[in-house]
Design a binder for these strands. Structure first.
Lengths: 81, 81, 81, 81
DNA sequence: CTGCCATTTTACCGGC
DNA sequence: GCCGGTAAAATGGCAG
């Protein structure tokens, strides 16, 4: 790898190009998401609110039992586990 | 600002040094926090759990009415606001 | 809540599900990127530096040299040359 | 829950409050840093580049040149010289 | 020394 | 078109 133009250089280029290809794919997906939001907005939905709804849906499974966890947490912290 | 060693350079140095001073202060506060956690740990409390408790306390004021907000959100998203 | 506003509820759900599907795709691409970086790391490349290079490549050549010059300028002003 | 475990509860509360106080201090310092960056920006400095320079200054000189050399190496390998 | 979690930084998106 | 805030990514630090 000390030789910038040697074999290692080819490996590096290969990795970098793979990453760049994936970045491109990712960007496409993001564009599609943007399109969906734009379409929704065009039908009168509030994009910001939609994002929040989606975020909350993502969270929901975890903190479903958040209250119980909190109780356990306190008990644990107080050495009552 | 084109002249690296000129007046602008002095301004830059001044800003950078102010930031570095503040970083130092911040590091001190962080160290104190570390000490508190260490002390708590020494008394048998679980640091990780304490962190979670503190984080939850920070969140509490916000999502106190999270459910209501969610409802409002849906209504808003559905144009029933 | 499944049909809070009748038809609009269905539309909302549809949009949300499309977004969630795209988010899933995005996550997969991200995982692949992670794999590539891991593989590069396994061959001795410095992932952090790789990221930096990739970020630079993203910039238009003009912006890139501008940025690099600015960095050099700031370094000079601070005696880090 | 005020004294879930008697004495231990008081200790816990005490620790938590100390941490919260320190968090408040930390937040203030962070705000001041924000102000400094904003001021610099107002005078035409590039905040992002400033951050980069500050990060470099944090590194021991040895590590710094090592890092910079590696970056140059990678750039060469990718024809970005 | 590796993986995880917290913090910090970067990039994005919507509003003005 | 810029700016501010917000979410994603990346770096760094800690624990095991």
């Amino acid at each position: 790898m000390a030789d910038a133009g040697g074999v290692a250089g080819d490996r590096l280029r290969s990795f970098v190009e793979r990453i760049e290809r994936l970045e491109e794919e990712k960007r496409e997906v993001q564009d599609q998401m943007k399109d969906v939001f734009a379409e929704a907005k065009g039908e009168g939905f509030d994009v910001k609110v939609m994002r929040q709804v989606i975020r909350l849906r993502r969270l929901r499974p975890n903190d479903r039992s958040e209250l119980e966890e909190l109780l356990d947490l306190y008990k644990s912290a107080l050495g009552m586990a």
